[in-house]
């Protein structure tokens, strides 16, 4: 099992968002988290990657995760290519993986541009390229489709299909349909205590 979650609860600001959450994901499975705003989709993703404490229940990961959330985490003054290479080096991923990721997210023409010049959608694509280039087996995507145009959504869908087909695992939170056929889906509304 790549991810196994049992009896997980999340308390934010004194309020229990969800409780008794149970699921396991194996290699080659993808999970979509749905539910209205504020139901705890982002919190669950942050708990899985260890950014929020897990006070009740347990999470175990047997693969390294890569996270793309609403913040691109790219230095505004650096060129896009360099900013992405910084993370690729930290991940010690092979450099052709980064070139591939840049190409797949359609960022070739933007690699020399400083990050602060990028639009919202381009920034989102850059964050997704960072995940693609990490070589991590588990992708955690928080609203990956936000701000993307149709062509970029298509590219994202193809990248997700390829990752799952290659034995990777994906957990994505999205309030609209993504062009990828998820193997599982959890609506967090029904996990509220």
């Amino acid at each position: 099992m790549i991810v196994s979650v049992s009896g997980l609860a999340c308390i934010r600001g004194g309020r229990r968002l969800y409780a008794g959450l149970e699921f396991t994901l194996a290699a080659g499975e993808s999970l979509r988290l749905t539910g209205p705003n504020g139901v705890g989709k982002s919190s669950l993703i942050r708990q899985i990657c260890g950014l929020l404490p897990c006070t009740e229940g347990s999470i175990s990961l047997s693969a390294s995760p890569a996270l793309a959330d609403e913040r691109a985490a790219l230095d505004a003054d650096r060129r896009l290519g360099e900013a992405l290479r910084f993370w690729a080096r930290l991940d010690s991923a092979p450099s052709d993986l980064l070139d591939q990721a840049i190409e797949r997210m359609g960022l070739d023409a933007l690699a020399e541009l400083p990050v602060r010049m990028l639009s919202t959608g381009q920034r989102k694509r850059a964050a997704l390229a960072r995940v693609l280039a990490s070589g991590a087996a588990l992708w955690l995507l928080d609203e990956p489709g936000n701000g993307l145009d149709d062509a970029s959504l298509g590219a994202l869908g193809r990248a997700m299909d390829a990752h799952v087909a290659g034995g990777g695992t994906i957990i994505a939170a999205s309030h609209f349909d993504l062009p990828h056929s998820f193997t599982r889906s959890i609506d967090l509304r029904y996990c509220a205590p």
């Binding site: 990657c49 260890g50 996270l67 959330d69 913040r71 691109a72 985490a73 993370w87 960072r130």
Partner: peptide, 13 residues
């Protein structure tokens, strides 16, 4: 703010 710290933590730093 930019999420750089979170990305480091996700990488186990």
């Amino acid at each position: 703010e930019s999420g750089v710290i979170d990305q480091c933590l996700v990488r186990g730093i």
